[in-house]
Simulated scan of single mutants.
Amino acid sequence: MADSAPAGPFAVRFNRAFDIATVVAVALWQVVAVGTAVLAYYDQYRSPASVVAIWGAQLLIIVCGAALLLRRKESTAITWSLVAVDLATGVAMAVNCPGEHQLRINWGWTSVGLIGVLLVLHRPVREVVSLLAVNAGIVFVALTAEGEMDRHTVAGFITLLYASASIQLALIAGARVFRFSGGMAAEAAAERWEMATREAVIAEVAAARQDRYREVRRLITGVLRGLADGTVDPADPAVRHRCATAEAMLRQLLAERDDVPNPLLRLLRTGIDETMRRGTVIDLAQVGEMPPMSEEVAAAIAEVPLAVLTGARENARVTVVSATPGHVSVSVLVDGDALVPETTVADGVTVTSDRDGDLLWVEAGWNEP
């Protein structure tokens, strides 16, 4: 059975779209909006060349932050180092702006906040709020130092603080919403995938059973007709063997109840069916409930028993036991010249064998790690 789609990778791809959108938005702001402001107010700064350097430094921070975000490289030391450099550019911009023009030409306030959001997008909200508070505090201190804190400046400061913080906190909220929605969408997609896979396996199992019913019918129809019209001798060993083979196959079909069988049982039944088609009568007995296991583990357990079955001559018995939690054993008793194959036994699987005359007994056991 195919594995169901894991929800984790789906959620990562879902949230990555928002991360990319955040990077694009911050980069466009820095290149287009801030670039335009630098050109428009170039001659109004105390040191125009320093402003260009600050703009370039912030652009470099955006590139580094985008690489960390999109590659999911969680590094507290690197993140907060970039945050410190980001805040330093905010201080440099505040110093470069004359006090009377601080709120009009200091684009660094908004840029530092947006870049900070990019850097701490998936970190705790308290860290985001602290960063934005420090950023606002830088501008507030700059205004106070210039003696520009009249009522008009305070009103403008509060208005700009509300406007910039609203955008920045909206990005943080959007990231949380996308993370929550991505998880829900991933779980729903995984459930749909699992249901579709289960339905496909059920249909496959049903089709296989129909094929086996037809196989039994092919084996026994001619014998029954011959017995009815007297053309077949019931004492003939070949007829008895053919009836025994069909009876064993039919008994297994009637005993099967799982729509989605355990991968180990599915592998064993496939090998048993192939051996029966060669005329070998096989009895399958199962004791206990099969523990969940992967396809790889099932293949490792079934490898030796299935190889031994290929050498069975007339009769064989397969017993699958899971009497204790996390333990499974598959034993095969065959007649003829069957041999235990020389193969590398997978981790966790043990193989035991014994021969008595023309009878070979092999057991493959597995303990869940």
Rank of each mutant, 00 (worst) to 15 (best):
D3G: 13
P9F: 05
F10T: 03
F14R: 02
N15P: 01
A25C: 11
V26P: 10
T36K: 11
A37N: 15
V38L: 02
L39T: 11
Y41K: 10
A49F: 03
V51M: 12
V52F: 05
W55R: 08
W55T: 02
Q58G: 10
L59V: 05
I61Y: 10
L69Q: 02
K73C: 14
E74A: 15
S75G: 13
T79I: 10
T79M: 12
L82G: 10
V85D: 00
L87P: 09
V91Q: 01
V95R: 15
H101Y: 07
N106R: 08
W107I: 03
G108Y: 03
G108T: 01
W109D: 07
V112C: 07
I115G: 09
L119W: 02
L121K: 08
H122D: 01
V129S: 05
V129R: 11
L132K: 12
V134H: 04
A136I: 03
A136C: 15
I138Y: 03
A145T: 12
A145Q: 11
R151K: 11
G156F: 00
I158Y: 07
Y162S: 13
A163K: 12
A170P: 12
L171N: 10
A175F: 02
A175Q: 07
R176F: 02
S181H: 10
G182V: 05
A189Y: 10
E191V: 06
E194H: 13
M195R: 15
M195V: 15
Q210H: 05
E215M: 07
V216R: 10
G222R: 09
A228K: 10
A228H: 10
G230F: 11
T231I: 12
T231Y: 10
V232R: 04
V239H: 13
H241Q: 15
R242C: 11
A244M: 09
E247K: 14
E247P: 09
L253M: 09
R257Q: 03
D259E: 00
P261Y: 01
N262A: 01
N262D: 01
L264W: 00
L267E: 04
L268Q: 02
L268D: 02
G271N: 01
E274K: 06
T280L: 02
D283A: 14
V287C: 02
G288K: 04
M293Q: 08
V297K: 05
V297Y: 05
A298G: 02
I301K: 12
A302S: 07
L306F: 06
L306D: 03
T310A: 14
R313I: 01
A316D: 08
R317D: 09
V321D: 12
S322H: 09
S322G: 06
A323N: 11
S331A: 14
L333Q: 06
P341F: 04
T343I: 04
V345E: 09
D358N: 04
W361N: 15
P369K: 14
